[in-house]
């Protein structure tokens, strides 16, 4: 999913659950900023593909795969909040709706999956979700004015 969709979903969650202070920072860290691994992969993309517009490059890393729950759950217990786990699972659920290859348990398992709802085109899923998230955010802002 695109960064805009992740930002909208996280913003909706923050508003819906009336999060404040540290919880908001954690929500955006684990709902959006886990995408930072794309920047880590950028030098490899440039070396391998160059500046061409080539789709399908493997931009993912274990930072945004289910395997990351192995460290996010202990971190949540340490911090005494479910916010990191909850927003990370939302991020995962959205990414797994897009059809590209993913390795959920790497490096512990070499299993490769394409996620769920694979028969529906990615553009349709992303478009519908984007529309729902925009409407929900606007509705929340409007009703709480």
């Amino acid at each position: 999913m695109t960064i805009v969709t992740h930002v909208l979903a996280t913003t909706l969650g923050v508003k819906l659950f009336h999060l404040h202070g540290r919880s908001v920072v954690l929500a955006y860290l684990f709902g959006v900023a886990v995408d930072i691994d794309h920047f880590i992969k950028l030098p490899y993309f440039l070396r391998s593909v160059g500046l061409r517009n080539k789709r399908g490059y493997y931009w993912r890393s274990s930072l945004q795969e289910p395997v990351a729950l192995l460290w996010i759950i202990p971190l949540s217990i340490f911090l005494g909040t479910v916010v990191p786990v909850a927003f990370f699972i939302v991020h995962l659920a959205m990414d797994y709706a897009v059809r590209y290859e993913k390795m959920p348990w790497y490096p512990y398992s070499a299993v490769v999956t394409r996620g769920w709802l694979t028969r529906i085109p990615d553009a349709v899923k992303e478009g519908v979700l984007l529309a729902v998230l925009i409407c929900s955010n606007v509705f929340l802002v409007w009703t709480r004015r």
């Binding site: 880590i40 490899y44 070396r47 890393s61 490096p107």
Partner: peptide, 16 residues
């Protein structure tokens, strides 16, 4: 977390 990313980068090099 850094160790996982290092292993990922090794795998990325393999894919490339």
């Amino acid at each position: 977390v850094i160790g996982l990313l290092i292993v990922d980068i090794h795998f990325q090099r393999r894919m490339d």
